[in-house]
């Protein structure tokens, strides 16, 4: 069988050392989705791949695959962007880790999805710029759930159809992936995580807005935390496990100050 050669763009989501000098990479590609590839000699070569194969690197790659069941071989890589700010800011680094972990847990090898690829690229691009890191994480999770088939139903109560508006407070059921109104909570014994009408409206807008315009959304802190809370819990339900990086995302929000016993 003749080997197939694939040229595409992709973002490195994982790197693992293999043997003396190789690297096994998980790349989320524009064509072909999540792909695993081996980069021979990548850890020792000073020229071929020199420091291009870093976590979160956005590359143009050439992959050679002998047959559909074999691991692809990375033949060439050209760096488009390194998202340098992710290494210089611990909060952005941790936010990127949440996005990376969620993507790795929610996708499978070879499932091509150009929308997920575009969203990943959008998220790392904005983490590398000025957008608040929690806003990027929240918007990523909201859209990514949609793309993997778990779009949160935010237009009305999933039980009675009572439509959402800014004057009402709803709950969000992670089991049903949708809103539950106050009356259904009390009469039908449904439970949900509290969500204000304003947060629901913001999430509805963010679900359908073109990706390129998402950066325009100005999200008040209260709404952002409410939205993150439900998306984190919903993600835990969808994945069947928690996102490990979330613990550190939460802890980086608390500033650490040290009382130095000695003076300069």
């Amino acid at each position: 069988m003749n080997p197939t050669i694939r040229e595409t763009d992709g973002i490195i989501l994982d790197t693992r050392e293999h043997g003396e000098s190789d690297l096994i990479l998980t790349i989320f590609c524009r064509d072909g989705g999540r792909s695993t590839a081996i980069a021979k000699g990548a850890r020792k070569s000073l020229r071929r791949f020199v420091n291009k194969l870093e976590l979160y690197s956005f590359l143009h790659v050439t992959l050679r695959q002998r047959n559909p069941n074999s691991m692809a071989l990375l033949e060439e890589a050209e760096l488009h962007a390194g998202f340098i700010r992710l290494r210089k800011d611990i909060q952005r680094y941790t936010a990127a880790s949440v996005i990376r972990e969620f993507t790795l847990l929610a996708t499978r090898e070879g499932e091509a999805d150009e929308r997920s690829y575009a969203l990943l690229l959008w998220a790392f691009h904005h983490l590398d710029r000025e957008m608040p890191h929690l806003q990027v994480v929240m918007l990523f999770l909201l859209r990514f759930h949609d793309y993997i088939g778990y779009r949160p139903e935010l237009s009305s109560c999933f039980h009675c159809g009572n439509p959402a508006d800014t004057r009402k407070v709803f709950g969000f059921s992670t089991v049903y992936g949708g809103l539950v109104c106050n009356s259904c909570v009390s009469t039908n014994n449904r439970s949900g995580i509290r969500l204000s009408g304003h947060t629901i409206m913001m999430l509805q807008a963010a679900q359908d807005m073109p990706l390129k315009d998402l950066y325009r959304l100005e999200i008040p802190e209260q709404q952002l935390y409410e939205a993150l809370n439900i998306l984190h819990r919903y993600g835990r339900h969808v994945l069947g496990r928690d996102i490990i990086s979330w613990t550190m995302l939460r802890s980086t929000l608390q500033a650490r100050t040290i009382d130095w016993d000695i003076q300069r």
Binding site: Y56, L86, K88, I90, I258, W260, I262, R264
Partner: peptide, 22 residues
């Protein structure tokens, strides 16, 4: 190291030790 996790750790330490008497 100059890897992403190595640099992120260095950045964290630099922030943490910003006011250290060293």
């Amino acid at each position: 190291s100059s890897t992403v996790p190595g640099e992120a750790t260095a950045s964290y330490l630099i922030d943490l030790l910003q006011n250290a008497p060293v």
